[in-house]
């Protein structure tokens, strides 16, 4: 028997709007850095590390904050039981360009570290104390089928019990984030985890 798996929440940041479970909860007119800052302020948190992050990490970190708020109970899982499996098209190119421009002056280690697309996973894991499986894949278009396959393997084999998965992509002002929380428990609003459902949600948020 395969384990039953459910999408217990999803969240997107796209086109100036933060939406949780399909409902817009925050909007901001302006450029991406302005949106990221406004969304951060909306959460009324004190997390100074946020200001040091590149836009890709800020976007992924914020999407996770909105996704987990009032949905995820960290007490349900041990740190190694939650995984983060992400994909994007532009890797870390947004920060790569900024790092390369900076080295004409003095190479900055704080920009260089973000020239790796998986740093966003590190930021999400640090914030939420997730120590389970993690992976970053580069896909020209979000490949829900592949992500579903990898996440299902991990959950079916009890390697992890919960997983944040989806797409976090940024290049300059072109950005899109859609994250899903997948767990083995049914809730009032959960839907069965499948590639079709992820695709449906991903494309609706476009």
């Amino acid at each position: 028997m395969l384990t039953e798996k459910y999408i217990t929440g999803f969240c997107s940041i796209d086109n100036g709007i933060v939406a949780k479970d399909g409902v817009a909860i925050f909007g901001h007119q302006g450029d991406l850095p302005g949106l990221l800052l406004a969304a951060y302020q909306h959460l009324q948190l004190s997390y100074p590390k946020f200001y040091k992050m590149d836009n890709l990490s800020k976007l992924g970190w914020l999407t996770t904050e909105f996704l987990l708020k009032n949905t995820f109970n960290p007490g349900d899982y041990r740190p190694e039981e939650t995984g983060v499996i992400l994909a994007n098209a532009n890797s870390s190119l947004d920060d790569d360009v900024k790092y390369w421009e900076s080295i004409k002056d003095v190479a900055s280690p704080s920009l260089f570290v973000y020239t790796l697309p998986n740093i966003v996973i590190g930021e999400i894991c640090i914030r939420n104390h997730f120590k389970g499986e993690q992976a970053l894949y580069i896909q020209p278009e979000f490949n829900a089928e592949f992500i579903t396959q990898q996440v299902s393997y991990l959950l079916n084999k009890n390697i992890i019990q919960a997983c944040i998965c989806g797409c976090i992509d940024v290049f300059e002002e072109d950005y899109k984030a859609v994250l899903f929380l997948v767990e083995k428990k049914k809730t009032d609003t959960s839907v069965v985890f499948s590639a079709e459902k992820m695709d449906e949600i991903f494309n609706k948020e476009a």
Binding site: N118, Y137, I138
Partner: peptide, 28 residues
């Protein structure tokens, strides 16, 4: 931007050999 993308390289390599499926790219 297109030329630098890992997806472009993966596609070129896949086409060179004639792989039928979309390649999987890991950058971690």
């Amino acid at each position: 931007k297109e030329r630098i993308s890992l997806s472009t390289s993966a596609k070129l390599v896949a086409e060179h050999f004639g792989f039928q499926n979309q390649p999987i790219v890991v950058s971690n």
